[in-house]
Write a protein that binds this DNA or RNA. Structure first.
Lengths: 344, 344
DNA sequence: CGGCGATGTCCTTTATTGTTACCATAAAAC
DNA sequence: GTTTTATGGTAACAATAAAGGACATCGCCG
């Protein structure tokens, strides 16, 4: 590999001059800069990121926490998070940052997430998909590494979420408009910011159309657990007053409920309507297409990168940067075939 | 951050002793090692990867070429490749390697893939999902960076592919068994190793059951292009002797064909059967479930990592390491609902 | 049994990796 | 003579590699 030393030798100047010329310092002669630059290009010079990082203490590397819950739902929640990841990556790269996956126990060396971050000297970390109840994730959040989270809120990080309340209100409003009066909500993992917001939105939605809130129509399940949601949907239909419309925690769960109810002889949406949440590409490909809420993963991922880089570059002068902040990204109602006119 | 210097000072020994103690060299006293180790642990020491890399010229970082073709099929081919990616990542991490996405034009600095690799000093590169006709990808392959490819063959890299021939033979055999005598094949991107192997497998399959090969039943399309495949399927059905079974290049394409043919009034599989390829999770969730070939993405990804690391660690003594090699991973037939008994 | 070199253990010193930061310095300009 | 402009020298950065030094132990011979 060609280094600045080689360039210096060939150019007849010192290494510091080369360094300064390549980094755009003003105290180098104009023609010298020209000579050095063209020679560097000609020799195919690439700076050594490691050496630069060692000296400047900046790697232009972003840590990424992105791991799927084992067992349950493997390969399911993929679509939603991988869309966010792609948008995140694209934006980060446009700012000159690379991405490193952060994991624990790398090479059996029992490194925690935070230790891994230190080892790789990442400038900051984005937590896009993780189990927040994990102590190691909490340790990461408590650390002084700049941090941005998706779908989670923490006092020391920037948070990016969809406007979940709005999403639920939209679903309830549309269902009401189609004549539904018994609208149930099977919600995702309890006690998470996302679920809390969704429940609030659901109740607000009911309230704004004048429907009463019924505890029996609010059921707990999980995210991306098709079978669990299917089971809960089935349970709902056994009520003496079964709902005419069921809102699910996500598109996969909705597909699970849909399949189960059809197997049980219910026709969708004729005898019962079903809605998803997320609006993954797939939801509009399957038949019937899902009525769902499209989360703007593109914006979420991009914003996540921007916020993180902002936190990094504003650095430790913590004046202009709040310790924590929360952004809600607008969502969009997607009309599909699983929510129909209420026939009762 | 705590460095070996700090440990050395606190421990009353020199930095090199600390370095040696932590790296398991034999010429350090047993109790000294003990003292240093426990102190390092206590102080929360983590080695600085950058500094280590600078000196040893090894980063334990693997470059990953993984970018989706723009426009067409975005978010579609995801499932297959992201399964491979996950397996790759898991295996690489178990060997102590991290992963860095490689891209061009990072931060508008117009770096090529190879330059990006040099900048980050990756030890090797895995090309999991890329456009191989891209000159920059070829440059990467020509370089002396250890390299492993998925679904592509190059004289200077290890290649991992599914046993595509076997897959096609299995499909043809099963279709024949169900009474089909007019079996068409809409193939993926032409002149790629995968397509070539598939076509060969298709022809072998026909031959082994004694069916003639008909040029009009071999149609060119693309991978993961639902609309194109749908259009080609429609075209096939307009033949005077339309096929009774259509084999598609991948699951998404199959779903496209399925949807289109149903829209046109054909019932699947009653009046025409359809098969996919890949066996993504989704294919077994949708209704009807797809008859398809499951590619063993788990093994492919894991093997990809292992081969790459082997190439790296055997290093430049190129005796035991062939310049190029090719591995074919067995596939599995997945019985679904889209391939049925032939009713003609 | 004492002296000498050989060997081995344990640790330190010094050099090196590629880069940038900081300070010094020489020449030119004012 | 002072300022400006352009350049060079050197010391970090955190770690490892190579070489070497201090000291103890051992074997062998006179």
């Amino acid at each position: 590999m060609v280094t600045i030393k080689d360039i210096a030798a060939k150019c007849g100047v010192s290494v510091s001059t080369v360094s300064k010329a390549l980094n755009g310092y003003s105290d180098v002669g104009k023609d010298t800069v020209e000579r050095i630059r063209s020679l560097a290009h000609e020799m195919g010079y690439q700076p050594n990121g490691q050496a630069r990082a060692l000296k400047t203490n900046r790697t232009y590397n972003l840590g990424l926490l992105y791991y799927i819950k084992y067992g349950l739902g493997t390969g399911m929640s993929q679509a939603y998070f991988s869309e966010i990841l792609n948008a995140f990556r694209a934006k980060a790269e446009s700012y000159g940052y690379d991405i490193t996956f952060i994991s624990k126990n790398i090479g059996s060396s029992n490194r925690s997430f935070l230790e891994h971050c230190h080892y790789r000297c990442v400038d900051g970390i984005a937590i896009i998909c993780a189990q927040f109840e994990d102590e190691e994730v909490q340790e990461l959040l408590r650390s002084d590494l700049p941090c941005v989270t998706i779908d989670y809120v923490h006092p020391r990080a920037s948070a990016i979420l969809s406007n979940n309340q709005q999403g639920m209100r939209l679903l309830v409003a549309r269902a009401y408009q189609l004549g539904h009066r018994r609208i149930a909500f099977i919600h995702g993992t309890p006690h998470t910011p996302v679920t809390n917001e969704r429940i609030r939105g659901y109740r607000e939605g009911l309230q704004s159309v004048g429907l009463p809130f019924a505890q029996e129509y609010l059921i707990q399940a999980d995210f991306n657990d098709m079978d669990l949601c299917a089971q809960k949907a089935q349970q709902l239909m056994r009520l003496s007053q079964p709902p005419t419309c069921i809102l699910c925690p996500d598109d996969y769960s909705a597909m699970g409920a849909l399949r189960r109810l059809r197997q049980l002889g219910y026709s969708v949406p004729e005898s019962v309507s079903i809605c998803g949440f997320d609006g993954i590409t797939l939801s509009q490909i399957v038949s019937p297409t899902l009525t769902t809420i499209r989360q703007d993963t593109q914006t979420m991922g991009a914003l996540c990168a921007e916020r993180l880089i902002k936190r990094i570059e504003l650095g430790n002068q913590q004046k202009s940067m709040p310790l924590s902040d929360r952004m809600h990204i607008p969502v969009q109602f997607l009309e599909g075939e699983t929510l129909g006119k209420c026939r009762l």
